[in-house]
Simulated scan of single mutants.
Amino acid sequence: MQVAWIGLGEMGLPTAMKVAAAGHAVRAYDVALPAAAKGLELAASPREAADGCDLLCIAVFSDAQVEEVLTGPDGVMSDLKDGAIVAIFTTGSVEAVQAIAAKAPAGVAVLDTCFSRRQSEMLPGKLTLLVGGDADAIERGRPAFDSFARAIFHVGPSGAGRKIKLVNNILFAGHLQLAVDALRLAEGLGLDRAATAGALVECSGASEVLHRFIVEDAAAILESAHRYMVKDVAAAADAGAAAGIDLGTLGAVTATYRSTWPSG
């Protein structure tokens, strides 16, 4: 399978290399090309990467970047061949990915392919793929998807993959904030943070995020997650508001992320 991969960040690079290691030809592009990209053919532009591809994978940060790659002035959507699949791994608004799918040329399938991973299993090949869109396109993309996903869930039509990813990410953000506060309580009671986290992962109060607190400082964990959590919690809250859903306790626990999201 000829695969184009746009976005070689923390998740994109190792996942693209996993696809290449499975025997697929992967032509990749990023605005900051990596020093090491084993098995990848690096392209000078998204258009060069996408030329003739069977599967276009997009793993950039925001909806605006996805739209630039696909439908911007130098967008590649109109050049994709009949039968091509576009897999969008970016987490963002449901409406944005549905709008992109609606604008796709006839014969081009757009999937919202959101991946997630357990905090205790951080390597490519241990990912869960949450997919919205056409079932046949998912099956046609499986040769590549199976190289990095241990489980693939077709959760519904276009936008459904993003919906469940937003539910996951706001829940993750809530778990993260609760873990920070719980371990702050533990330290206030004279307990060691790492030892407490190591014990709690085996107890009824366990959550996946606690694994990280065994070996990492809380401030470092929050800093690394903050940019993504602010974006994703805001998108989840907006989706809930549009559906008339009160987030209840989940909203209260994640309020710190929404308070730092720029308005407008």
Rank of each mutant, 00 (worst) to 15 (best):
V110A: 15
A87Q: 13
T91Y: 11
G72N: 10
L111V: 03
E95Y: 05
S116Y: 12
T91P: 08
F89N: 15
P105T: 03
A84C: 10
V108H: 13
A96R: 08
A106T: 08
V108T: 08
T90E: 04
I88Y: 04
V110C: 15
F89K: 12
M77N: 05
K103E: 14
I88M: 06
A84T: 08
V66T: 09
A104N: 01
G92F: 05
F89P: 09
S78M: 10
V69Y: 03
S78C: 03
A101W: 00
V76E: 13
T90A: 14
Q98A: 09
F89A: 15
D74Y: 02
L70D: 07
G107K: 05
T113F: 14
A99G: 07
L80G: 03
T113S: 15
R117T: 01
L80V: 12
D79R: 09
P105C: 09
V76S: 10
S93W: 12
M77Q: 06
P105F: 07
C114V: 04
I100A: 05
L111K: 14
P73S: 07
A96V: 11
L111A: 13
K103Y: 02
I85R: 11
A101Y: 01
V86S: 10
T90H: 09
G72Q: 06
V110F: 10
K81T: 07
V66I: 09
V76M: 04
T113C: 15
